[in-house]
Design a protein around this nucleic acid. Structure first.
Lengths: 218, 218
DNA sequence: CGATGGTTATTTGTATACAATAATGTCCTG
DNA sequence: CAGGACATTATTGTATACAAATAACCATCG
């Protein structure tokens, strides 16, 4: 997108991700336009894009709201993500370049460092974790698959989960990444798929524990 | 969407599906606006929507073209569709209502009739086949899944394939649908998934035969 | 007191004018 | 004649005014 419409997109998306726009809140084009310093036209573009990426929803009379997620919908997201990202890992096992595998190692070393920092550097973990998964997806070299996953992965609620990861959970992620790297080195698509599926599945349970079992604890 | 923007969407989408807008053709907003009898604003909305559904693509300088599909991309579409629609069938096996199963039977009887007509009524087959798959997806009761599949299923090239189905292929489809119905009656998600995966996979080979092996024959 | 109808206010949809950017063509120069 | 700078044209992006649709409000009636 170009300048103004991109600015609106970043602004609104950022506000949703950092929680200043809460789920269920109504988004008025004129108000957003004022907040972003642009006119309604690029705001409308941004809202359509955010709707496609499931950050916002529109009701039957075309009014726009920050998306609210039920537990069922969130779990369904994790199931779909594990299926698609597992498939991505399988494809990547057969296609990823050695240099890309090296990059995976680099990011995973950074994740290890983030885990060992005191206190653990969760923000660094999030960044390198994101980069790690992006490289895997890139290695799958399927635009269509990347497109499907783009609409699933970035849920504010999921990001908030990972933000609460403790040292042990970060180390566990790192270990799973390491196993994936070995599967890649062996060019074993079935193994890669299984590791990735399990990795995502574990993330779901981390989310579930954090927000539905014993919220706030541990 | 509302009136004008919906009209533009239908018009452009229809022109792509019936081939009057060929893959690779550039779409100019002003020209489309004139053709649809609306202004550029709703045309822009329609193009964004069609971009999300992969009917059109935009190049790096924001110009829009009718999407072109490589063989690899088409096969990838079939793979993803078999995976997701297989999962939909598995979910549906555990959730679909008896009355929905009855509807599936009705549509499949209509497909049988279409196969036995002389000449086979391919158009009726396409309609009832579409309805059949829609009911399965409905039975899966996952909005998110429905959303992902929406962006994959309706490829002009795929529709063109099915339009060339002969009597035997229609009968084969009907038989696979019947087996799926039995799997639903037994509430067996694994069976349902396997049948659906196989069903889609066969469709891919029908496409491949029709357009890449011996075009026009059989 | 609740429901219903109509009036007002709010919000989104559309058209249009103008600005910005990319593509195209032309003319000069080596 | 090739290549490149510049002017011209084509195309998309943005702002704004107005129209249409929807929701909110209030009064009136049962």
């Amino acid at each position: 997108m170009t300048k103004a419409s991109d600015r609106a997109y970043q602004h609104i998306r950022g506000a949703i991700l950092d929680g200043s726009l809460v789920p269920g809140a109504q988004l008025r084009e004129e108000q957003l336009a004022a907040a972003c310093g642009v006119s309604r036209t690029p705001v409308r573009d941004a809202l359509r894009r955010l709707e496609g990426e499931h950050y916002v929803r529109r009701n039957e009379s075309q009014r726009t709201f920050v998306a609210e997620w039920s537990l069922d919908e969130i779990e369904e997201g994790f199931v779909l993500r594990s299926m698609l990202e597992g498939y991505a890992a399988a494809r990547a096992a057969l296609r990823i370049s050695d240099s890309a595998i090296e990059q995976l190692c680099t990011h995973n070393r950074a994740i290890d460092a983030a885990a060992q920092a005191d206190p653990p550097d969760v923000s660094a973990f999030l960044d390198h974790n994101r980069a790690f998964h992006a490289i895997v997806l890139e290695g799958a070299s399927s635009e269509r698959l990347a497109d499907l996953l783009a609409g699933i992965v970035e849920q504010p609620v999921v990001t908030r989960t990972a933000r609460q990861y403790d040292r042990g959970q970060i180390q566990q992620s790192r270990a799973e990444h390491d196993e994936l790297i070995v599967a890649f080195r062996r060019r074993d698509p079935d193994w890669a798929r299984a590791v990735m599926t399990s990795h995502i599945r574990r993330a779901f349970h981390a989310y579930h524990d954090a927000f539905h079992q014993r919220p706030g604890k541990r």
